[in-house]
Design a protein around this nucleic acid. Sequence first.
DNA 1: ACCTGAACACCGTTCAAGT
DNA 2: ACCTGAACACCGTTCAAGT
Lengths: 178, 178
Amino acid sequence: MALNKSAVVDTALDLLHEAGLPGMSMRTLATRLNVQPSALYWHFPSKQALLAAVAERVLADVAPVEAGPSAPDELRGVARAMRIAVAGVPDGAEIVALGLAAGATNPVAGAVARTCARHGGGDRAAGLTTALTAYVLGLTIEEQTHHNLAAVDPSMPRVHYDSRFDEGLEAMLAGVTD
Amino acid sequence: MALNKSAVVDTALDLLHEAGLPGMSMRTLATRLNVQPSALYWHFPSKQALLAAVAERVLADVAPVEAGPSAPDELRGVARAMRIAVAGVPDGAEIVALGLAAGATNPVAGAVARTCARHGGGDRAAGLTTALTAYVLGLTIEEQTHHNLAAVDPSMPRVHYDSRFDEGLEAMLAGVTD
DNA sequence: ACCTGAACACCGTTCAAGT
DNA sequence: ACCTGAACACCGTTCAAGT
């Protein structure tokens, strides 16, 4: 049975769930696929390109947001959908940041555009997309890094990122008056 | 002349400015310091601990923000000061995210607290700190990753992150009504 | 077209031993 | 206390050669 891109991405996601990014080397990936490491380079030009493909898979799993009663309600839903997809795979936030930097299409952009079409404020769509995306990725990168550090050093204080995420999101949506 | 922590951090920052994170290995660092790689492990328990110390140095360079006429004005200044410090060193955003995850004190927290003390809204101080910090780091990580990719593949389309940063920041401060 | 085998040029980290 | 020397167990990537 021949190797192909999507089988490689599948197995990469398996390894990520088992041991995170440090456990997913081109060599462990090749071993899992019963192939030599060099075989992967026929399908992907580099590990970064492979990770970008993983990022696109993760982004494809961002749940669509149905129409809501207000713009803040819908945008809250968009941000949470992005966070759930990205936090669902170990080191997923870092991988998705790489993917977006490499030019992957950001599903938040379309969702924000639809919200602005329904509730107005289309002139701020680009800014809102940047703000929500960078916020979700920034906080989740910190969270997943913290998780990796705490796994090695259990004396580290626990931090509750889910409630911090909601707090920060509400502050963003509320804005600052004066 | 004996080695010490701050000399190691100094030289690490030199190497980061010359070649970014990929160019700053424990081995290149040791070579630059005329020492064996293993010598570094007397001063720092791991490379991550060393990078956390680099992060604290970067965070110490966040410029303090003077009192302004309004809360949004001050918070804009806080976010920009954070961005300037972090974007000023190659791969600085990723390093600072690691530092914060490891427990470094975030200068944005104090600055936001002072702004809330002056202009009110102290109940949102924690949320605003989380929102501004994660936003700055998230966008700057994407930017610096994009920069590293474009250095290897010059056919990549350029992106202007400075204007995107301002757009996203204004959207955050404005908030979403309805 | 797709993969093997073998190598190249690196990594972070450990640890006995020196001074 | 502070560092050397040498090793261990890995990396990503390349490339001739096979099928």
